[in-house]
């Protein structure tokens, strides 16, 4: 069809992203949805990770991606649920650009329940790419093939969380093979999705302590004000007058806690604590995710 012919960029074409063209097994053509804008490919960061992310992984992805995307770096990922989807989402909501590389034909959305996100990516000037045409179904072998495009498009790859044998490790190893930088977010060793990351760190991946480390690599250090990771910007006395509320914030600054743990630490009955937590939530100081509370 005519429209399909339009939405494809061959490897010989000058519009083909040069960074991707450098890799040995670059795809012959890229099908796409959205508006092809070569500037999109200038600075790209691949963000990959496990499908079974923890709330820690989600928070770290959101935090780093939103800052990096805001600085103008395009976030590339694989549109899978888990870290991939969170990375796309964070980029979109930070007002940044993002590229989703699909493991299936360009005309299908996989997984289809993320159709909303798919649309958002396109609406915000992002791109959806695939090397497969039409309605080619996703298969076991298309996922690792897809990963080479994710790694190939980007100057660096960030791995947030990855279990043993995770697809994110394939992407990271490809990035290494192509001579690109690999960043890894340190994980608690107790986490089931930390082994892959630990392995990468052992093999020489660069530890990421926050979005600044990545921005520095891209030479964008100056473009954003120094932001500290999740550190509370709470000036006691302005909003939080209550002593209990202060204590809660102090505890949560150290680590995320379940409300029961908080109750035990502060030795406050849940009735009173619940009220204080509600107030802090309404004020926007803390937030809750899967039963645990975080300082915002």
């Amino acid at each position: 069809m005519l429209t399909e012919e339009k939405n494809v960029v061959k490897k010989e074409n000058s519009r083909y992203p040069s960074l991707l063209g450098d890799i040995s097994d670059a795809p012959k053509q890229l099908y796409y949805k959205g508006t092809w804008n070569l500037e999109l490919f200038d600075t790209c960061l691949a963000v990959v990770g496990t499908r079974r992310m923890t709330s820690y992984g989600k928070r770290m992805t959101e935090d780093i991606v939103s800052k990096v995307a805001r600085a103008g770096i395009t976030i590339v990922s694989g549109f899978m649920y888990g870290i991939d989807a969170v990375a796309h989402k964070a980029a979109v909501s930070a007002g940044g650009k993002t590229i989703a590389v699909m493991p299936c034909g360009i005309d299908i959305v996989h997984p289809e329940y993320q159709a909303d996100l798919y649309q958002e990516i396109l609406d915000t000037g992002g791109l959806v790419l695939s090397e497969y045409e039409g309605t080619h179904p996703p298969a076991n072998w298309t996922f690792p093939r897809r990963n080479r495009i994710v790694a190939g498009l980007s100057q660096a790859t960030l791995v947030v969380e990855a279990g043993e044998g995770s697809g994110a490790l394939i992407t990271a190893n490809l990035a290494k093979k192509y001579g690109r930088k690999v960043f890894a977010v340190p994980n608690p060793l107790t986490s089931a999705v930390s082994q892959g990351v630990t392995q990468l760190l052992r093999e020489g991946a660069t530890v990421v302590g926050g979005a600044e480390d990545i921005l520095q690599y891209y030479g964008l250090r100056d473009r954003v004000p120094k932001l500290s990771l999740g550190a509370p910007k709470l000036s006691l006395g302005t909003g939080v007058q209550d002593e209990l509320e202060q204590n809660i914030v102090e505890q949560l600054e150290k680590q995320s806690l379940h409300v029961d743990e908080l109750a035990r630490r502060l030795e406050v009955l849940p009735a009173k604590l619940g009220a204080a937590i509600s107030m802090l939530q309404l004020e926007g100081y803390i937030k809750e995710e899967q039963g645990r509370y975080y300082v915002n």
Partner: peptide, 19 residues
């Protein structure tokens, strides 16, 4: 009072999915 309402809010239905 305020505190009663604030506590009641803790028992509202919450979303447990990843978004």
């Amino acid at each position: 009072e305020k505190s009663h309402m604030a506590e009641a809010l803790q028992y509202r239905p919450k979303a447990y999915e990843f978004d």
